[in-house]
Structures are given as structure tokens and as C-alpha cells.
Design a binder for these strands. Structure first.
Lengths: 235, 235
DNA sequence: TAGTGGTCTAGACCACTAA
DNA sequence: TAGTGGTCTAGACCACTAG
């Protein structure tokens, strides 16, 4: 058995909540109903619902049912999923590439200490602006050590996703994220790109992604406009 | 039935781990063994063990058993540990209490949707400023639903820590954190408290801590001055 | 091969909600 | 009173670990 019953039900209900098929305050079908619909035992249904409740998607009320919780208008940006995977489910997302992947020297005063190997390898840089519902929300500068990235600059990304490309073409899985968070005021360039007034407060993130390749990290540096959307994080 | 079987087993095992009867690396008795010792079904044992695993006290290994974990879950400021535990190791930390725990009504337009029960229960509020190396770095407004917090406002915190107090005196463990992050400019009061100029950009966090008590959440709202220190996060 | 945890079933009784 | 979620049982088969 590849995927388990409770996982399938959990995934299905979660996506139905995220897509708006079940809205805030709605009652899910009862445990017995879900069980007979999917031809699984009630205890198996309960396992899926318990997981959803632990993650805050629903709350269970004895004698009443499972109630869909408020969905937050927020971008789950602090997880280590790629941008499109995280935000795309609930919002329309576009990416504009300011600089396609380019081999360069590392910037001076890089925000993380680099190993000698990374220094010598050089880096691939790309710059992108992320749009949510046609508003520019985030500028991202990404830096990858130029180690084993054959044809990386020449071929387009798989599904437009950096992380999918690393996974499928370079067997490099993102396993972890380490990040530093600051509040800063927008400089002129950043304000122009995010279409905000200069001095607007932005969240600045320095990130180091850990990967399944030993000693291989992906770095990124980004600014987020949080006036309309917040950055959300759930551990 | 006042206390449930899985709760009793959970509590017993947890205290045996905390007291050192089971040490790091030890195997707990198997699920079948615990079941026959306590004359309860294996599924009931599993529920207690699953809870312990979720909270990081043990890890379960298929084919082997349940292994007692190291006691510390180390993480950065965005983790769900209390402030003193996280920052205190490397920096000198002090806390100034602006408002000691006080029973109040909930603020208008609270940042998370509250359940009816939480609304009716009222809340305990406290306000604290955190200092790192004698600089005010963070203002934290904490809100706890006034449910079962007997003598909470009358007694001091255990070791000065809210989370230790909740754990030891109220059997409430923090299990998870959900948070929204924004950049804002300091208003006058906040600027004064953090000793920064008005309009300085600050990181604003809205937090909802999940706990081991069903449907019991702790809320907090905080401002961080990130000019000197950043907020770090490692998943 | 014996023992372990992972998943699952088909029942059961209870306390609670809402009509 | 009918239906709901909370707890619990006594089985079952599986994949995995370790001797």
C-alpha cells in the first residue's frame, strides 16, 4: 500500500478547504459519513481529522461536528517549499525574471560566510520579482554555488520552479531552511520594483537552504512588502 | 471516567522521562507490553505514545521501539521556546514587566478569530519588554484565555518563565506556533519603549501558540527592533 | 524468526449539541 | 431524541529491525 487511507483523506480535505469548497464555519461531513463515503473505518477518518485539527484547519466540537477554521490571508513564505507551491494554491501568482541565471563572482560582503570551495566555484545568480494577484510582493535574489550545475543557465526551469529543477535535473532536494529576519525601509530601487513609496517598511530575509547534497547550500536574499499580505509560518 | 487511560499513561511516561527513570536513548517498553501492564488496548497505548512523540520526548522506530530523545529541542527566536531559553545562552537577557498578569476583556479587533468559549472566558494580559545586553529589543503583549488559570495572576512565574509556569503549574505544554510576520514603522509609544526614533522599521509578529490542552491557545503580539540583532529561524 | 511499530477494521459506550 | 465527536477494545496484516 503506497499511500495510506488517512493520508489520502487528509490531503483531499485540506485541498478542499484551501480551494474554498469548504469555507470558514462550514461543517465537514461527519466522521461516520466520511467513513462510509470512502469505505474506511471511523478510526481512520479520525486520524485524518485529528491531523487537520492539529494544524488549525478545523476545530472539532463534541456533539456538533468538525468546523472549518478561518483561513488566513497570508503567504506561507517561511516554510521551505518553493514560492509557487506555497502561495499558488490560494492566490494567483506570477514571477518576473529580472536577471536570468548568470554565472558571476560572489558579491562582496556576502551575508553568509562561504567555504573556500564555494568561493572558488563562483556562483549562479538570478533575480526575480514575485507577484500575488498582480501586485509585486517580493523581490528575490538567489545565489547558487556553481558546482555541478551543468546547463543550468541554458535551460529553462521545470514548471518555472527553481526547486523542481534542482530536484528533477540535479537530484538536489531542499531539506531545511535557516534564515535571518529584519525590518528595513525600502531603498529607491526596491521601492520602484515593489511599487511602494520609498521608506516603506519591508521585511528582509537572508536565507540559507540546506540540501540533500552534502555541503551544498542555496542562498537567497529577499524583500517582502507586507502591507497587504503577511508572511506566515507554521511549525 | 474522569481521567482517560491514554492521559494517565502519557503523564506517567512523561514524568518518568523528565525524572530520569528513562534516559536519553533508552527504549520504552513495547506497545504490547505497556498495554498488558496497564490492561489497556494497544491503540490506547499508541495514542499516549503518539502524543509524546509529537512533543519530542520520544521517537518511534519501526521494528525497534520507542526511543527516549534528548531533552532539548534547540531553535532560534522563531521557535516555540520561551525567550529566555533561546536567547539567554549567548546574550545577557533581562525582562521588564510593564503590566503583570491582569484579567481583562479581550481587545477589540483581536488579531486572531476567537472561539465563543474564549470570548466568554475573558483573558489574562501581560506586557513585557525584553532586553538583550541591556538594550530593549522586543515588546511582547501576551493574551491567555482565562480558562483554568487558577491563581495565575497572584503567583509569580516559575523561574520567571511563562512557559515553565504553564507546564509545571497548569499541565499546559506549548506544542506548536503559528505566526504572521510584518514590517511596520514604530509608533510613538513603541519607539519610546524600544528607545528608537519614531518611524524606525520594526518586525511585528502575531503569534498563536498551540498547546497540549485541546482548543487552548496562547496569543502574543510583539515588536522587535532588528537594527542590531536579527531574528533567526532554523527549521 | 520473533518482536516491533504502522495501519486498519468493526464494533461499543459515553457526553455533548441541537432540534 | 437523533446525531456528533471522544474514548476504547480485540482483533488483524504489514514492513521493518535485529539476533
Amino acid at each position: 500500500m503506497e499511500i495510506t487511507h488517512y493520508q489520502r483523506l487528509y490531503t483531499q480535505l485540506k485541498s478542499q478547504i484551501q480551494s474554498g469548497h469548504y469555507k470558514e464555519g462550514d461543517l465537514l461531513p461527519s466522521e461516520n459519513e466520511l467513513g462510509s463515503q470512502h469505505r474506511i473505518a471511523r478510526m481512520t477518518v479520525r486520524r485524518a481529522l485529528t491531523e487537520l485539527a492539529n494544524e488549525g484547519y478545523i476545530r472539532k466540537v463534541k456533539g456538533k461536528g468538525s468546523i472549518v477554521s478561518a483561513t488566513r490571508k497570508s503567504l506561507g513564505l517561511l516554510s521551505f517549499k518553493g514560492f509557487s507551491e506555497v502561495v499558488g494554491a490560494e492566490h494567483q501568482v506570477k514571477t518576473m525574471t529580472l536577471r536570468a541565471p548568470t554565472v558571476m563572482a560572489w558579491p562582496d560582503r556576502f551575508f553568509y560566510a562561504l567555504s573556500q570551495e564555494e568561493q572558488q566555484a563562483g556562483c549562479v545568480t538570478l533575480e526575480r520579482v514575485r507577484f500575488v494577484n498582480d501586485e509585486p510582493i517580493m523581490i528575490e535574489y538567489t545565489y547558487l554555488p556553481q558546482m555541478g550545475l551543468i546547463d543550468f543557465c541554458e535551460s529553462p526551469f521545470v514548471d518555472g520552479s527553481l526547486f523542481k529543477t534542482l530536484s528533477l535535473n540535479y537530484q538536489t532536494e531542499i531539506t531545511n531552511i535557516e534564515q535571518d529576519i529584519r525590518a528595513v525601509t525600502a531603498d529607491e530601487v526596491t521601492a520602484f520594483l515593489l511599487k511602494v513609496k520609498p521608506l516603506t517598511p519591508l521585511v528582509q530575509l537572508y536565507r540559507r537552504y540546506h540540501t540533500s547534497r552534502p555541503d551544498y547550500y542555496v542562498y537567497s536574499h529577499l524583500y517582502c512588502n507586507t502591507e497587504q499580505y503577511t508572511i506566515s509560518n507554521f511549525q
